[in-house]
Design a binder for these strands. Sequence first.
RNA 1: GGGCGGGUAGCUCAGUUGGCUAGAGCAAUCGCCUUACACGCGAUGGGUCGUGGGUUCGAGUCCCUCUCCGCCCA
Length: 1051
Amino acid sequence: MSKAYDPAATEPVMWSKWMDSGAFHADPSRVLDGDAQPYTILIPPPNVTAALHLGHALNNSIQDILIRAHRMKGFETLWMPGTDHAGIATQTMVDKKLKEAGKPGIADYKKRELTGEPGREEFLKLIHEFKDEYEERITQQLMAMGCSCDWERQRFTMDDICARAVREAFFQLFKDGLIYRGKRLVNWDPVTQTALADDEVENEEVAGHFYYLRYPLVHQTEPGNHDPVTWSELVRRGYPDAENHPEDEQAWITVATTRPETYMGDTGVAVNPKDPRAKAVKGFFCELPIVGRVIPIIEDDYVVLPVKYGGQEGDTKAEMSTGFLKVTPAHDPNDWMIGQRHNLEPINIMAPDASISDQHGWDRETNKEGGHIFVGKSREDARKLVIEEFKARSVAEGSSGSLLERMVPYSHSVGHSYRSHAAIEPYLSDQWYCKVSDDKLRGNAQRALKPEQRTESSIKDWPESRPKMVADDTTDGTMNFFPARYAKTYENWHDNLRDWCISRQLWWGHRIPVWSRERMTSDDIEQLKLVLSVGYDPFSDEPDEPAISRTENEDGTVSMHVCFQNENNTDIKLFESAGFTRDPDVLDTWFSSALWPLSTMGWPDASAAKDSSGINDFESMLAAFNPSSVLTTAREIITLWVSRMTMFNRYFLGDDKAGKAPFKDVFIHAMIQDGEGRKMSKSLGNGVDPLDIIHSHGADAMRFTLCQMTTQTQDVRMPVEMDESTGKNTSPKFDIGRNLCNKLWNAAKFAMMMLEKNPVSAGMPIDPQELSLVDRWMLSRVAHATGAINTALRNYMFKDYADAIYDLLWRDFCDWYLESIKPTVADDANQAAVLRLVLDSILRLMHPVTPFITESIHERLSTIPMREVTGFSFDQTQSTGTLCQSGWPTPDQALRDEVAEEAYDRIRSLITLIREIRASNKVHAKRAIVLHVSGSLAEDITRWSPLVETLGNIKEVTSAEAPEASAAFVFEGSEYRLSDLADAVDASVEKERLTKELADLEKAIGGLKGRLSNPGYTDKAPEHLVNQTRGELEQKIQDRDSMKASLDKLG
RNA sequence: GGGCGGGUAGCUCAGUUGGCUAGAGCAAUCGCCUUACACGCGAUGGGUCGUGGGUUCGAGUCCCUCUCCGCCCA
């Protein structure tokens, strides 16, 4: 074996070995035949937009640890790999890359499409090429990390298998009325020109202004005819302060807005009914400056009262408010609600790119409205122009002050696209919605949660969300978050859930399987019935028939939407010939992600599932592996993903639409930040590439370090440094993992050298009682570590796992066990057998975290026969000669040897004392010294003397009187001496050391005495504690007295 | 505005129901190329546990106040 572990030489070889062994392939029949319990993890499919980052490395290391440990524990494990098509992200990424390369972008392909050329298809081909490249890269990365996925089953959210699931799910939801068409405000991204879901919008604080605009008041005598309202009229109606204005001038009200550019879309002004001015302006109208539209003043208690009229002091909104609110239903969600309540018409004044337009709902010319100067301006330019124009005008000719009353700086949060980072425009459009607020979706998601993780306040607001928990229920109350606090995030999300906008105006994604025809008259419908085959009723609800929904329009016409279950339905052509066209939009990426637990298992039709690689054993996958065991993911997608998977899994897998949750546990891992607590990102340049770390430190080193970092907190920090020699980012934290691997390598090298000298021969299991102290101690430590690791795995405490490995390998095995057995192992057959067994166990316990190095060492170790120790066995697995399929250690409780542990701990304390003296007297490591023992413990020490001699480099343990030139120490109350430290012992060094130790003892004695003289303590503290304190004090006094005696001798 | 996480040694983090002198790794210092490992071995120094208060015989741990950093939601 080489002097140092070489990951680059080892990892590819071990990887091939695993792939050849077929160890990662899951066999559902073993589960269904009862040969093994299933253990399943579905990979959170990484987006095909980029290579994996360190966060992925962490998440996938964790999953591999869980999978590998359970494989060794005898479970039939399935780790389902795959990637996500990431609709908007991928499409914008490809568009950007094309533009950077000077090639035509999506805008050009859209033009082609308009001229009848194949634009959409051609562009999708380009995205597919991009996807293939990144999918390959991601796969390579996961393999380089050692991820033991079932690679034969790798999926992609847009492959045929997944597409079938999406089609079926959409059809069922559509048919059940849980997908509907709605015209309402969406979060519109004007850059990518698509709608976004609420959770794809990020709020950012933006420094802007509050603009105070004056709207003149008018009477509307008849439509199109209006007269100014004068201040004197307002005085008569009791409008406060109206008397301070010239009485014959036109009166105005002031609205405050952060978005003056939307004023062209105003269709009302609202005032709070509690406002004292409300009565005075009742029945009046406002005339929109420049545009000239006359809009009503309505009363709505949504309007915030200004402080002057009853608003709360200190409330920023009340302090900013004028009491009058311009209502723009088509461009603000709150205004939309007000508009709904008061029948105000929404007027959309923007084009999809957010420029001002009179072509998308603002019928400016027909209504003879002004404002043409704003048309065509971007929303930013329009804002400037509106302000300019208002500033230059006054309410009426001759009146004082401009229409722009004032501007106040104001910073507020504005929604931005999580993809393009453009400010979101609330935009009126027709979209498809999934009715997730329905109890069959939301309710099932809530009820899936374990009762202990629900909060009473949530259940109180919504009693039907309480898990039913009938006997043998495997549906409600089964899902468990780790750490538990994240259940709250999940619960809270559902409490405030709104319907999910699932259509996206993109090309890259699952095309919506709906054909529509808008505004059909009753004649059209009769004609349609004729066009369709004789006897065919488009409104029937038979299986295999398309699902049809109708929306009644205001003008009495009907819009019809037809959803076909299969692409090859012959009726599609019929409907198309009747004027139906396919919806051009695609589905939100999360729609297919939400089906991941189903689509990857061949749902809905296992027998028909067959993918390009020819794998066709989906037959029992769903039954064997759904629900999965655990989902490990990042907290930011608890809502986007975890919730929706739960809804869909339960909805589609239950006869009564209340099936099983898709996973038993949900583990939310920490987020890796840089040393300053910032997110790792490309723009900050503080990211660390997993492949760089694999090259510099090895995959195992990276995995161990990540495992050790994974605590239960929500963020973990990783100081990032630039490696000067490679110009790449790295972190000193990975050295821990590399050093650990090297330690293991060398320990194994040494152990096998010993085993060559003293080969183990097979035979009957050894009775632990026949073993030496140190062997019994070591087995006890393995048993202890196994228990600690099992507990850590059960609770997803990965740091505890890493620490248990570290302590077992480095502290117990290397520092003490190997050092202890050096002189004896070559001649002690039992000891050699224990060494063989312990090393094997350590390899097995470490394997899930550091798979490559352990597999490599195991390959050599397995050539040496193993002789077992009674009580020390391994789980049954489908062994194929690889470590990754070898059994997990299952030591009996009886191997936990308290007596051996206590005795060995005493020896270690004694050795530590001896080493301290050696160090303070600068005794060379090679110089063997003499230990003089006396007192009651002399017998024990003599019995341990071979160990003491080895570990302390003692050449002789004697009861003979020590010579003058010797160093004293106190162990368990008695004085011991070390002699032959050097040719002469420096008395002053000795004196200094003993004096300091004496002072420490005195201090401790003082503390203990103080505690015991406090009656509060002796009366109230538990008796065993008080006794313990008394014993301690006694011991310290003995130590002190011995120490004093030693010091006295020095003079 | 609501919710959550965090503030413990120079750095990264442990610290279970309150109970030994608050721990580990790295870094630092000193000594060692001791025949597995210098990616190592032995030893040493280093902390008012964010602030202020409370409960208790006893608080890093429980309660309250304030403060700073970060995340999520509105």
